[in-house]
Design a protein around this nucleic acid. Structure first.
Lengths: 156, 156
DNA sequence: CCATCCACTGGTCGGATTGCCCAGTCCCCG
DNA sequence: CGGGGACTGGGCAATCCGACCAGTGGATGG
C-alpha cells in the first residue's frame, strides 16, 4: 500500500481541479501520462480513492440547517434503529459509537422549525430512548482530506 | 433554484457511476446531450454540485479509526481554537454548535493508541476547557446525499 | 557482480468524447 | 396571440482516452 509523494501530489491536484484529465495532470506533475494512469488505477483499486462522485451541497437543495444528534438506544434494538434511520432522507450519516451504546447522526433540515419535524421523525421510533441535538452554527473546517493526504504522503 | 426530476435522476446517476461522461449520461436518461450539458452547467453554477473531487478513504491511508470530539471552549477563544484545529491534519471537519458554545470535530487516527496522541494534540491548546470523545465503531449509514436529492426532486 | 524485476518514459494508434454551434419544435406565460 | 425558454437532433473540429510498445534506470535478490 503506497501513497508516496507523487500519489499525494496527484490527489491534491485532483482535489483542487477535478475537471482536468489524465493528460493535463501528467503535464502539471511533470511525469508521463502512463504514470498518472497507472497511479490512478492503483489508487482506485487500493480503495484509497473511492470514486469521483458529485459533491452535492444540501444547502443549495433547500436544506441549509445541519445538526448532529446523539441517540441513546434501547438494548438490542440497534438493527431496527439503523434500518429506521436509513429510511430517513434527512439522515446524511449514522455512526455507532462508544460511550453509552449510542449513535451519532448528521441531520439536515429546511429550517430550524423543520428540524423539529426531522427530529420527531428520527426519535419517533420505539428503540430510541433519548436524543440530544446540537445545531450547527458555523463550519470553520469543512470536510477535508488534503492535509491528511499530505501527511500520509510525506511520512509515507 | 431548480432541482426538478431530471436533475435528480442526473445526480443520482452520476453518484452511482461517476465515470460516465455527458454523452453516456444523456443516453441513460433518454434526453439529448445538450440538455445534460446544460443541466450540469446550471447545477454547478447553482452550487448544487460543488465539484467532482476524489473521495479519499482515510482507512486506506492508514487512518482506520474515526472519532467525534465535543469541545468546550473558553469564552472569546473561538477564533484561536478554530485556527489551531485547522492546523491539525487529523481534524477532518469542525463545526461550531449550539449547546454550550461548543464545537464538534471529526477526527481520524492510525489506531486507538494513536487516537490518544491526536486528542492530546487537539486539546493541548489553551482555549479548550474540556473535550469528550466518542469513538466510531460502525458506520451503518455512510455519508450520503442521494435520498435527500430524490426527496428534493420529487417535492420540487 | 550479474540477472531480474519493476516503474517510468516517450511515443504511436484508432476510437470516442468533448465543447460549441445551429435551426426547428414544443409549451408555458404574460 | 406573441415571445422566451427549454429541448431536440444534427454537425464540426479538437481533444482526450485507453491501450500498446520498446527502451531505460534503479532496486532487488541470487
Amino acid at each position: 500500500m503506497a501513497i508516496d509523494h507523487l500519489d499525494g501530489r496527484l490527489i491534491a491536484l485532483l482535489a483542487r481541479e477535478p475537471r482536468i484529465g489524465v493528460l493535463e495532470a501528467s503535464r502539471r506533475l511533470g511525469v508521463a501520462r502512463g504514470t498518472v494512469q497507472a497511479r490512478l488505477d492503483r489508487l482506485q483499486s487500493n480503495g484509497v480513492i473511492r470514486g469521483f462522485g458529485p459533491e452535492v451541497d444540501p444547502a443549495a437543495l433547500g436544506y441549509p440547517v445541519t445538526a448532529f444528534a446523539t441517540l441513546e438506544i434501547k438494548q438490542g434494538q440497534g438493527a431496527d434503529v439503523r434500518e429506521h434511520l436509513a429510511g430517513v432522507p434527512e439522515v446524511l450519516e449514522l455512526h455507532t459509537t462508544t460511550g453509552h451504546g449510542d449513535m451519532l447522526c448528521r441531520l439536515v433540515a429546511r429550517s430550524n422549525a423543520d428540524l423539529q419535524r426531522v427530529i420527531d421523525r428520527v426519535v419517533g421510533f420505539d428503540g430510541i430512548v433519548r436524543a440530544s441535538t446540537a445545531i450547527v452554527m458555523e463550519n470553520p473546517v469543512p470536510l477535508r482530506i488534503i492535509p491528511l493526504v499530505e501527511q500520509a504522503a510525506s511520512e509515507e
